[in-house]
Design a protein around this nucleic acid. Structure first.
Lengths: 160, 160
DNA sequence: GTTGAAATATATGACGT
DNA sequence: ACGTCATATATTTCAAC
C-alpha cells in the first residue's frame, strides 16, 4: 500500500495521536484537545475510520493479571515448497489464538511469531503439539521473554 | 505479578473478550452481548479498569497508510556493565518513539526491540544515530519485516 | 443482580457562515 | 470546512425490588 498521509492535515494527526493513547476518550474531550468543535471533530474521526487510517479500537489488557505469564518470540524456518503449501501453513499459524503477531522477515529464519501463553507448560504444548506438527516447518528457535520493558501500539506520527 | 484471574468470573472474561476486539463499543451494546443489564455491566467494566485488568484503550492505526513503511525487529547484545549503567541505557531505549516494544529475552542476544519507521532511510538513521551510539551496545542484529501476516493485541483468555 | 426513571453528558443532524 | 443550535441517544446515578 502506498502512503496516504499527505491527505491528512495537522488536526487529523492530532486526533490520531490522542486516540492512539486514549481510545475511549469522549468526542467532547477530544474536540477540546484538538481545538475544534465536537461535530467537526466527530466528522474527522468518522472519516479517518472509514478511510482506514483507524482500523479499530482495543482494550489493552494486563497479560500477567489475566494469567498469561509466558511470552515467547519464535523464529521459524520453512522448507522450500510450492507457494500454496506455504500459504496453507501460514493460514493455520495466524489462526492460532496464542499467536499474537506473525511476520515474514529477512535473515536466517523466514518467519517470526510472538506467542502468549499462560505458562511454560502451555508454551511447550503449543510448540510440540501445534507448531512443530505443521507441515514444512524446517527449524525453529525460541526466545523466552524474561521481561517486557515496553509494549505500545502508538506510532510516532510524522507532521504533515 | 501473581495472576488474579481466579477472581474473575465467566461474565468478566466475556466483557474483556468483547472489549479487546471492540474497545469503543457502547455500554448498552456490551451489556447486550454479555447478557447483563447496562448498570451491572458498567460496574464490572469500571472494576476491571480500576483493578488493572484493563490498562487502557487504544485506537489501532494503519501503519502503512500513515507513512510507516518500515518495521524491523532488532536483537541487541549489551556489554556486561554494572546494573545501573544498563538500566540507564534501557531507559533511553524505551523512551524512543520509534521503539514500540522492548523485551529482555533469552538466547544469544539480550534484548529484542520492535522498531517502526517511515522508510529504510529512517531505520538506518535510527540504528546509526540513535541506537549504536548508546553506551554498552555490543552487537545488534536486524531483521526487516517483509510482511506482517498478523498483528493483534487480543489475548486468548482462559475460562475461569 | 434487575428494572425503571431522571439527570447529565454525548453524539448526531440541520442550518447558517 | 467549520461553528452553533436543537434533537436524539447514551450514560450515569438513584431508588425500589
Amino acid at each position: 500500500m502506498v502512503s496516504s498521509i499527505s491527505s491528512l492535515d495537522r488536526t487529523d494527526i492530532a486526533i490520531l495521536r490522542v486516540l492512539q493513547a486514549e481510545g475511549r476518550i469522549s468526542n467532547v474531550e477530544l474536540s477540546d484537545r484538538v481545538h475544534l468543535s465536537p461535530p467537526a471533530t466527530l466528522a474527522r474521526v468518522r472519516r479517518l475510520e472509514e478511510e482506514g487510517y483507524i482500523s479499530g479500537y482495543a482494550a489493552m489488557l494486563n497479560r500477567e493479571k489475566l494469567g498469561h505469564d509466558n511470552l515467547a518470540l519464535i523464529e521459524i524456518a520453512l522448507e522450500l515448497h510450492q507457494y500454496e503449501r506455504i500459504t496453507e501453513v501460514l493460514d493455520q499459524l495466524v489462526a492460532m489464538p496464542e499467536v499474537l503477531e506473525c511476520y515474514h522477515v529477512t535473515g536466517e529464519y523466514d518467519y517470526m511469531i510472538k506467542v502468549s501463553t499462560v505458562n511454560n507448560r502451555a508454551l511447550d504444548h503449543f510448540i510440540a503439539k501445534r507448531l512443530i506438527p505443521l507441515p514444512g516447518i524446517a527449524r525453529i528457535h525460541t526466545s523466552i521473554v524474561l521481561k517486557a520493558l515496553k509494549q505500545t501500539t502508538e506510532l510516532d506520527l510524522p507532521e504533515p
